[in-house]
Amino acid sequence: MRRVVNLYRSSVGKKILMALSGLILFGFIVGHMTGNLKVLQGCEPAVAGDHAAGLSVASQTCAIDTYAEFLREVGYPAVPHGAALWGFRVLLLGAIGVHASAAFQLWSRARAARTQGYGTSKDISFTYASRTMRWGGVILLLYVFYHIAHFTTGQAHSDFIAGGVYHNYVVGFQSPLILLVYLVANAALCLHLFHGLWSATQTLGANHPKYNHLRRPVATLLSLVIFVGFMTPPVLVFAGVIS
């Protein structure tokens, strides 16, 4: 524990913790995106007597609903119902906490390190994305609140049915405004990952002369995969392909 505290105390250590928490969050994002693709599987008419699926919309069984139920059931009966999911949620919350608080501390350090700014300045960073990390991060955090209220707890949803993931999803993305919100948020996420993934390899010292030239393309590819993976189903919903 002393070592972790020491790590947190130094500016480099904060960055390392930021990279590690970022990678946890990235892992979640990959899982989330993969799960969302289940929307593409659509729904099948409910089989009589099958109570496990389609709780509210009893007439059909949707793949994503089954998947959502599965997430709640993971670990049962070894752990109580929903406990694994909650455990994971706590982990994510912790990761967000570490990520954001380290970001905040590094930001305030940087502010103190240059109290007088330049009259004329030119951005000579490697990429534009690196300069958007802080505000981009704040935007993403706000978006997460909205997103939870929209699809998890339902307060921000016009026609929310608990457990009816497919229903909520399809209804949600029929509005052009909401689609736009998600489009912007995912673009921000993509930009954040584009720099963040490369940056994490740098911070964790995962560099090797032989593979260094691959770091940037791989980060680009992964962030685009995330963007396309998240945005394909909503666009299809909006276009009426999925209903």
Partner: peptide
């Protein structure tokens, strides 16, 4: 790194402007 920090420099966030 400890002295770097106590001297009041900011931290690196991998912009790469330094290299350029």
């Amino acid at each position: 790194v400890e002295t770097h920090d106590t001297e009041g420099f900011g931290n690196c966030t991998n912009h790469g402007a330094c290299q350029n």
